[in-house]
């Protein structure tokens, strides 16, 4: 069979164009990201030093450090994951491995997707109504963590589901054929294979949670605290809220501008570090699954 020459050339040209466009777009995205990082680093790095990281805020938060906000954010991220990770993974396992195909499963999946689309301020209001008032936790690390956990839940559920779905069915069959029960098969075969991808969900969730302001607004965040929190029933400061506060309210917005950029810088670095750590963890487990 022979093909008309011009047709082939046009195809090649079209392909080159599409590839070129796709490449330009992806480079563009990277460029924008770098630009944001560059801006924050440039403005913030001059402010950040050991004292800034380890001291309490001073002088109406125009000077001193942001130590309590860093600690608060770490508490909230850890607390929310402590709640969202086990609950979300178990829910994902239930939906993908146990629930029978049918209306119930479809409904659960639909609600999970809807939950992921709810604006975070709604979570804040809900958290205040349920955890702060109804359950009487007050504005506290507990209430804030649970609220952030709810926000992270759909991410964890969905990535868990996807991770489990991508596990080849022949592994499950091999396990059943050896007399493995469903639970044993999930624990010893399916979960280890899916773990690296499940950890991706954890990374995404951590990234999301550490930067949220709205959910902690009414549930935990404090404008300023002279002391670090002593228990989960205390309020705490948090980086995103601190950033919001010193750049919008207060009497000395201009004076606290450098502090704001410093805070932004620290927040970005923390998210970056968490992401890198989680990626390393995932790669490590990915290798272990193959080798084990």
């Amino acid at each position: 069979m022979t093909f008309p020459e011009s047709n082939l050339r046009r195809k090649k040209l079209g392909q080159a164009l599409m590839f070129g466009l796709a490449r330009a777009i992806s480079y563009g995205i990277v460029a924008i990201l770098l630009l944001i990082l560059f801006f924050i680093v440039k403005q913030g790095i001059g402010v950040v030093n050991w004292r800034f990281l380890t001291a309490m805020p001073e002088n109406g938060m125009t000077q001193g450090g942001i130590f309590p906000a860093i600690v608060g954010t770490l508490y909230l991220v850890a607390g929310s994951m402590l709640f969202a990770f086990p609950v979300g993974v178990m829910a994902g396992i239930y939906v993908n491995e146990y629930a029978k195909e049918g209306p119930v499963k479809r409904f659960v999946k639909m609600m999970t997707n809807n939950l992921a689309g709810v604006p975070s301020i709604i979570f804040g209001l809900f958290g205040m109504a349920l955890f702060v008032n109804e359950l009487n936790f007050g504005a506290s690390i507990l209430a804030g963590s649970l609220t952030l956990g709810l926000l992270a839940l759909p991410i964890v559920i969905r990535t868990t589901e996807e991770a489990l779905k991508s596990v080849d069915d022949t592994f499950r069959q091999a396990s059943y054929a050896l007399g493995g029960s469903k639970l044993y098969t999930v624990r010893k075969v399916v979960l280890p294979i899916a773990l690296p991808n499940i950890l991706t969900g954890l990374i995404l969730a951590v990234g999301r949670v550490s930067g949220e302001t709205a959910p902690i607004l009414f549930t935990v965040a404090a404008y300023f605290l002279p002391k670090l929190p002593g228990s989960v029933f205390d309020q705490c400061m948090a980086l995103p809220y601190h950033l919001y506060v010193i750049s919008t309210s207060g009497t000395q917005i201009e004076a606290s501008r450098p502090m704001a950029y410093g805070t932004a810088f620290v927040l970005v670095v923390i998210v970056l570090i968490v992401n890198i750590l989680a990626t390393l963890l995932r790669n490590y487990f990915g290798k272990k699954v193959k080798m084990n």
């Binding site: 022949t170 592994f171 069959q173 396990s175 007399g179 493995g180 294979i193």
Partner: peptide, 19 residues
Amino acid sequence: DHLRRNVGMVFQKPNPFPK
């Protein structure tokens, strides 16, 4: 489960576990 321990199976495509 007990039955399946007594009646083993080998599949069309080799499917060792990633272990």
